[in-house]
Design a protein around this nucleic acid. Sequence first.
DNA 1: GGATGTATCCGAAACGTTTCGGGTCACAGT
DNA 2: ACTGTGACCCGAAACGTTTCGGATACATCC
Lengths: 375, 375
Amino acid sequence: MSNTGNRKGTLKRLAAELELSVTTVSRALGGYTDVADATRQRVLDAATRNAYVPNAAGRMLVTGRSGFIGLLLPLRDRARLDPFLGEYIAGLSEALAERGRDLFMATVASRQSELDVLRHVVESGRADGIVLNRIGECDERVDYLVSRGFPFVTHGRTLEAQDRYSWVDTDGATAFADTFRWLYQLGHRRFGLLSITENMTFRRHREEGFRRAVAEQDDPQVSVVATHVPRFDVAARQQAVHTMLADTARPTAILALTDELALCALELASGLGIQVPDQLSVVGFDNIPESAFSTPGLTTFDQCTREAARQLATLLLDSLDSLDSPDGQSGTTHTLITPALVKRGSHAPAPGAPHTVHGTVPANRATTTTRGSYS
Amino acid sequence: MSNTGNRKGTLKRLAAELELSVTTVSRALGGYTDVADATRQRVLDAATRNAYVPNAAGRMLVTGRSGFIGLLLPLRDRARLDPFLGEYIAGLSEALAERGRDLFMATVASRQSELDVLRHVVESGRADGIVLNRIGECDERVDYLVSRGFPFVTHGRTLEAQDRYSWVDTDGATAFADTFRWLYQLGHRRFGLLSITENMTFRRHREEGFRRAVAEQDDPQVSVVATHVPRFDVAARQQAVHTMLADTARPTAILALTDELALCALELASGLGIQVPDQLSVVGFDNIPESAFSTPGLTTFDQCTREAARQLATLLLDSLDSLDSPDGQSGTTHTLITPALVKRGSHAPAPGAPHTVHGTVPANRATTTTRGSYS
DNA sequence: GGATGTATCCGAAACGTTTCGGGTCACAGT
DNA sequence: ACTGTGACCCGAAACGTTTCGGATACATCC
């Protein structure tokens, strides 16, 4: 007997058992000072004996906080899964768990709109904060959350008005600029840029970083052929990459916006009898697991997804805390992660180029800018 | 003006605006019949105009359901992430979203006990049901949920008393038995079994399937060397695999319980100058992304993680629905998925063996057993 | 004209928690 | 004896929803 059989442990039950008021039991458990030590001990004992856990709904209703952080998860129908989802979620929930919150997935089914789901989550009070990713150049989700004044952070950023909110992003511009310079130093002059059609901001940054470096070099010998392929259409992707490779004046160095594109180039090159890296260098971006196992191994940039996720979580939690604290001053924080280049076997000096000094490699560093808004 | 500025849309506000009672508004939105069509229309209009979304806590408190399904997610400290987490979560939340529920991660930080976290989730009422994975031969989490009578499903199963709950599992026993027979027909006689130390039930099933097939063959020429390596210790793993490969009478065929082990074998074999598949066949299990890119490509079994996850979700939702329905009869359902063999380049007839007929390959099929409990 | 039915609406309770504003009591100070 | 002063405790309201059991008004039926 004793505790078992006591379905549903509520404060009321506990209070009845102890012949105390609900108030006192609540305050004893809450650590308030106006309850006698002896009483508190009795309450604590009874609570552990009955394995009491406060009801989430009751607490939520009165405190207005759910203890949840929502991650908006669009399921583009049946397409290949974001290769980072696992790492991402692990990083987020790890950091959240350390500070007593949990993550939930606000799943967006194929026929729903992301904005609708987001609105529901926010208005229903199921989340204390939101993590957004796959940010477009203009993003209505961001606009909504900003205008609604709801706490959130993003992985990636919009093209403009980035100081309205806190974000963590990868510095693709610098990475691509550095890569161009490095490959240029290796003697490459004919470049291919494998990009995507999707209107994500990271595309813009990476392309612009590359083009800026090209412009800076100001070498008339440098030629660039760029192609944009839909991210989730395998046939179209292969077609586009094939076109680039089959050209007689094909590039000697290809920069791909994602590893998927780079791996596709590797595969097609091998099919066309093009030697990588002797005749063609390929550099990717993301460092997905497969890229360590391709032949040759893919030289690429590591995204540090898990670390980025941890930073996102911390950022969001900090801003929630500062909302609670009496001085509700909350600025926005922006973190740019410079991804680390992972050198594997898919790059080499340009064919026929003299063996020059190896170029300098972008180092791994992170920049954080915090700016308060005192409006 | 109009709607904006109306912070927090509650039923009370809506009722005031419409000069109706809270009850009527609630019933109008709830689709009850005892409200006039004209009134319902007015209510519906006002609700959309104000973008009304019911407060989750309020509803939760009175209905006792949270709309959430919990996934217990242990974060073994910093170890390599479960390669399937992403697919897994995608499959689950996809199927859940179709039926109006969402997934949340009950994260188990490194210092917490899984059981404690589970208890908190259950007793706090934050989840309507639970998904458990990484099931051990005896699993205290399963025991707790069963005795508590809380709805849950598992991916994998305990060794005994499996009919106490619903599960989805991969038929590793059949897969390993079939694989042995197949490799035997290919002429292999010296086998290596790369297993794990962890006490997961799938280990037992796969090993026993293999050993049963060996026993059935009853060929004195067949020899088996087995080794158990810790799953998350890279050095120990390499050491163990190296020992197996460095032996002069080393196996000609290695069956690995996971792709990670198989890939390790592939890598070390190449380092030792052992030709795969001519001198050594390696078969893995899981079909992780990397295994398509190894050299040679790894022959392995596909887990169909996403599909398994979908089945898990459906199973759980069905059982929740049947709890709600008047006839609360709820049985348990058990689904065994026979994984599909993915033939790539890491297998071949035994060295020196005559080129025999290729053995039959296990086909992909699924068996579902439903058994009601009418006690 | 009274009884019965029907269509429409509402008051109030309940879910479990937190918290504000007291209340009681004993004891010390004057 | 009266007033303060802590120490300790509690009643009641509030959060937003659902739902049970009426209540009202009006038409219909015998």
